[in-house]
Design a binder for these strands. Sequence first.
DNA 1: GAACCTTTTGTGAAAATCACCAAAAGGTTC
DNA 2: GAACCTTTTGGTGATTTTCACAAAAGGTTC
Lengths: 412, 412
Amino acid sequence: MDSLINDPFKVAFDSLEEFADVISEVLQCPVTIEDVNHRLLAYSTHDERTDPARISTIIGRRVPEKVINQLWKEGTIPELLRTQQPIRVKNIDEIGLGNRVAISIWKQDVVLGFIWALEIDKTLSEKEFILLKKAADAVKNKLLQLQTRKNNKEERFQEFFWKLLTGHMNIKEEIIEHFHSLQITPSPTFAILVFKFQGNITNQEEQQISYLLKTNQRLKIMLYTIDCDQLIVLVSAMNIENPIQELSHFVEAFRWKLKDRFGIQEITPVFSSIYEDYQKIRKAYNETLTVLSIKEKFPQETKHIYHYQKLGMFQLLHFLLEKRREEDYVNQSLHFLRVYDQKHNSNLVETLEAYLNNDNNINDTAKELNIHANTLNYRLKRIAEIGDINLKDPNQKMMLFLDLKIEKFQSR
Amino acid sequence: MDSLINDPFKVAFDSLEEFADVISEVLQCPVTIEDVNHRLLAYSTHDERTDPARISTIIGRRVPEKVINQLWKEGTIPELLRTQQPIRVKNIDEIGLGNRVAISIWKQDVVLGFIWALEIDKTLSEKEFILLKKAADAVKNKLLQLQTRKNNKEERFQEFFWKLLTGHMNIKEEIIEHFHSLQITPSPTFAILVFKFQGNITNQEEQQISYLLKTNQRLKIMLYTIDCDQLIVLVSAMNIENPIQELSHFVEAFRWKLKDRFGIQEITPVFSSIYEDYQKIRKAYNETLTVLSIKEKFPQETKHIYHYQKLGMFQLLHFLLEKRREEDYVNQSLHFLRVYDQKHNSNLVETLEAYLNNDNNINDTAKELNIHANTLNYRLKRIAEIGDINLKDPNQKMMLFLDLKIEKFQSR
DNA sequence: GAACCTTTTGTGAAAATCACCAAAAGGTTC
DNA sequence: GAACCTTTTGGTGATTTTCACAAAAGGTTC
């Protein structure tokens, strides 16, 4: 009996729900157990008192994203990930969060989940804090079991996803069936999303990415995997009015969170077009790879481009370069300008490119080149003469623009 | 002796030169014999009196182009090609042409050449006109022989040219050697020039073309041939400051002459880039064919384009279409605009295309579409919204322009 | 037909462009 | 170094373009 008082959790229990009730009884307050991604694993039922945040969590079987965001902002979650001690959280009315105490569940140096105890009418004492610590210790093996089972499932996910990405599964029915067997509902429309990291993704980063993806509630993520320095995600694009904008927001938010919460910087996010046909996953993936390779060659020009469709003519560069090569074409106008530049130490080509980049805007271009607007005008006139170019002809300008970019593409 | 007075030209003569002297002696004035293309065949030497036009003709071994042009303008040559009678030409001081009489040399209903008799101090009498007619009759067989010999040579030209055009002769030394064996000096730079006629080129038209090409002195024509409705010309681009401009002028002048002199209309002239390497004749020829096929599909847009290099992005269309096809790409922006157009009976796509065609010029576009400039502005705003397009981004605009043209290209 | 939305047109002020001119700076040629 | 050419910069004013706003017109929905 003494040992039970010292550690009331040294009992056998079948399910996590049962265990949540045990904790609840010992501490005399409602209890919730979450995994490390804030998915609800179990909650006590003996105590009816609760707060809106807990209700939402139970209803949605996960902690609402705004609550997670808030807990990150004011430091609770970072603290939980740092220490094994219980943490007290003051109520935050805006998100319906009452006073509560939380503790993280550790297995060696990895956090497996959290236990939350609501302080509805009472405040937990120092002694009860120690009990909570013991509870966290007692539950860790149970969580680990769940984890392992999930890992197996995870592996099956991985295999399936890679088959899709590489186009090794291209019978429609087979794909759908596989989705269902993995208990995923394939959304009617999807996109592939890739985040390219600075270097290979470490295990720790993997955890953090996984955490962010699992806690995100903005977009439904069907599958994801990690490949060297890339995080590849299959995301649903359904039920959204403007999917592209939504995806843009998502990647921005994701990048921001990685930086803000985990200090991971210099992420390059990209995403494919939106498709309905799951046989096109490979194509979508290739699109993202194209975007990445273009962004690598034209970091400045494509700074604000994440989306394949927004690449504009950049998506053609690779292709056009090949054509140019095979027919060893020379753009005469550019050639003349180059010769002139060489001979007179001028910058007509550079000027032309800046002008074209700036959508024919004299002022912007002059500013970018740090020259007087009239100087620019003069140069443009010379360019037209020397290169025999009609700068009012969109056709010619387009060709020049393309040829300039093709050459850059080639030389990089 | 009587017969000699009746027809003093019924004598055997070895060369045309000899015969020219005979005529000169009979008529007592300087005589020149030309072929139908105004190339000098022979001239009398017994009489020293002459005029500047004749001197130029003898020096250059052909009638100067400005003289020919003048003789066309005031009707002499058309008349010579019509009648077998001698024609009197009054002196034309601007081109150094003194008074003279001309007659055409006929073989059945084909003109083989001309005889010119200068009226330096005397005026030819009616009797001498009859003599001239007899001279023309006497010389025709000699000319025919030359013609035939030339035809054989012509055939060798043809064969050689076609080998070059089709890339069946691609050893540099061999090509040069062939040129020399045909007594052509290959110019260091060249271009291929093609005129496409309305229908297949008739024999008569062939004569007329040949005439125009041979009398042209602006550009040196190395080889030419006729293929169904195409006249294909290998032209020198040397010794000209601005060859492309020169070529443009030439084709314009050629077209104008065909129309003005022979009533041949609706000629489409095109020409290739300028090359130095004669192994590239085939490539140059293919360029012209590309220009022709594009001009057929986009007659309006390419109205003023004759030159491959001036095709701008049109030269890529064929190529891009293939790419688009193989990856069944859909431009989302255009798709949204099309859907909107369909649903609301609007013309956003058409508006966008006009705007892009007009180099982003609001006024010009509005005029073309017969709408108010503000209406256009409003539509553009809507286009940006609906198609999720940034109309300040040259990249996106370029892609839209290309995709629009690709679609047009495809549907034609 | 009222209420509502989209589209077109008109107006005027602000901004940008363009065609000039002129001065100055930099380079090349003889 | 003088003469010459090209390039840069500045300024001016006419012209065009852009933009915001308002009114009118046309359609759709209830």
